[in-house]
Design a protein around this nucleic acid. Structure first.
Length: 259
DNA sequence: ATGGCCAATTCGATTGGA
């Protein structure tokens, strides 16, 4: 089976590319982030025409996540259990479901904005709630994975120029410790192949020729438990989807499994 | 060919992204 995660930066703006991509790649399950629409505006019918069911957790112009599956979609949980609120709002940043043989989460971790900002504390609290929420499944015998935009570059090599990130979010020890805490629960980082250049970046800023100059970051991650990671045949970043007019600033991460 | 931001929203300056 083939699963993938993709921060689409508006599913409405990305719909033509998304539908064509699902068909051309034969993806069985797609974890979507930044739908940027209300749940009622989610293009569930268009996806159904292609044979996909959708589980959507979205409220409006910001955030929003979904799971899109053609191999079943059951036991849907919307939201992060025990997750923190930001300015009194429980934002739609997580949805989980069982798709065929695997249990999956699609997550959009808060950005953090600036180190020391309220949003940064919120980001770390959100990570801790995620860790607590996945403990049981991470240690379980069934294939399980958390996929999405984690908004953290796990290692120095995961950003194009570390000197440009001095004092910035996405690379701080506290954020990386939050990823390490997830790994200590039994999840491992399924690192994709790059299809060009030496690093598997998944995000390139729209500004200043970020993509043509390969000024990227690896922040879209697949964290799988042992049964999941052991079934991985291949994984790659589909940088072709970052090209051209109407691209998201993130590329899909694809994982092929013997399941 | 991969090109000097993009998307949603009070319809256009603002917010958020990372």
């Amino acid at each position: 089976m083939r699963i993938a995660t993709w921060n689409v930066n508006s599913i409405t703006a990305r719909l033509p590319r998304l539908l064509a991509w699902l068909e051309s790649t034969g993806t069985d399950v797609l974890c979507v982030q930044e739908t940027k629409c209300a749940e009622a505006q989610f293009p569930a019918e268009r996806l159904r025409e292609l044979g996909y069911e959708s589980a959507v957790h979205a409220t409006g112009r910001w955030n929003g996540v979904a799971l899109v599956s053609r191999i079943g979609l059951t036991d849907v949980v919307k939201g992060l259990p025990g997750g923190p609120e930001y300015e009194g709002v429980a934002e739609p940043r997580a949805v989980s479901a069982t798709c065929g043989p695997v249990r999956l989460w699609s997550v959009y971790v808060p950005n953090g904005r600036e180190v020391g900002h309220d949003h940064y504390g919120y980001k770390l609290a959100w990570f801790e709630a995620l860790r607590a929420a996945v403990t049981e499944d991470a240690a379980g015998l069934l294939p399980f994975a958390v996929l999405g935009d984690f908004n953290v570059a796990p290692a120095d090599d995961d950003v194009w120029d570390l000197s440009r990130f001095e004092g910035a979010t996405h690379v701080t020890p506290a954020e990386r410790a939050a990823l390490a805490a997830l790994r200590e629960e039994g999840l491992s980082d399924v690192v994709p192949r790059p299809l060009k250049y030496d690093r598997p970046y998944t995000y390139w800023d729209y500004r200043e020729l970020g993509f043509p100059k390969n000024r990227g970051m690896r922040i879209d991650l697949v964290y799988g438990n042992a049964p999941f990671a052991g079934a991985v045949k291949d994984s790659y970043v589909d940088r072709e989807e970052r090209k051209g007019k109407g691209a998201s600033d993130h590329a899909p991460v694809v994982v092929d499994l013997d399941l």
